[in-house]
Design a protein around this nucleic acid. Structure first.
Lengths: 148, 148
DNA sequence: TTATTATGGATGCAATCGCATCTACACAGG
DNA sequence: CCTGTGTAGATGCGATTGCATCCATAATAA
């Protein structure tokens, strides 16, 4: 193939920079509001999605795309903070199921709000309708291609 | 303003994921080749750009977009690895100028090669010419808007 | 049953980062 | 010359991560 082209190379640098800037600002907004980091929000959202019987840690691993030790520690911290609770798992005594506490639910609601606001302020507000659609499509194709 | 729109929201998720996937793979390629991480490569490239009289640490800070302590430590590690050398700064005895060693130069060349190959394999090869141009433009506008 | 292997989770260790702080030198003003 | 303020860098601390390892239980097979 011919030279990658400067535009293409530059697009990667820009993607990196945009990611760093936006996620940095969102993280900062959460911290400023006295809320847990994005990762915890993701975990709480994933819990909520599971209905009555909370998921097992290993299920979160794929959903959050983390290494197993990372999951173990995040959950330990969240439990220590009172946002989740360990529930005995009847059919497998090695593991446990994750239950959201009322405190955890409240944190999730507030964090989601702050997150949405920050994401809008630091990303969505800077994109036109057409640009957003185009970006979504290009990145969707890219991800498909990367995973195949 | 109206609802952000699902496409727009999704585009952020996708940008995050694409960034994580691609940078993860590049980092992995460097490690597999026994080479230092991306950050070191960035630093070495920045040094090369400076010509004869190497830059001061604080100059790298803005170029690499790092916190000051991070710069201090990266440079300490790179010096320990023999890739750079501290040179006394005649006109300011608080600081020093950074000099690339032959070893550092060689590492930069090899890392740049691996980096380019990995970036192509894990990013550029998955983008069409038109998509790359569009991505570059959208992200360029976004960054301009974010920084203003 | 018992031995083997696989799997869910936890933990020890080294490396790294953000934040606050600290030291040393520079550059004023008096 | 001396004192106060600013700036270049380094360092201590707590938090987090990746990697390897370890423990306990499950599942399978002999």
């Amino acid at each position: 193939m011919a030279e990658p082209g400067k535009k293409a190379l530059r697009s990667w640098r820009r993607l990196e920079k945009a990611h760093d800037l936006v996620s940095g600002r969102i993280e900062q907004a959460l911290k400023a509001a006295g809320l847990p980091p994005l990762l915890w929000l993701r975990a709480l959202e994933e819990l909520e999605r599971h209905g009555d019987r909370g998921p097992r840690p290993y299920e979160l691993q794929t959903a959050l795309d983390l290494e197993q030790p990372a999951v173990s520690r995040v959950l330990a911290r969240m439990a220590a903070a009172g946002l989740i609770a360990r529930r005995e798992c009847a059919d497998d005594r090695r593991g446990w199921t994750i239950a959201t506490t009322p405190l955890g639910h409240e944190a999730r609601v507030r964090a989601a709000e702050v997150y949405a606001t920050a994401l809008f302020a630091h990303f969505l507000a800077h994109l036109g309708e057409k640009q957003a659609r185009s970006l979504d499509e290009i990145l969707g194709d890219l991800l498909d291609s990367l995973r195949s």
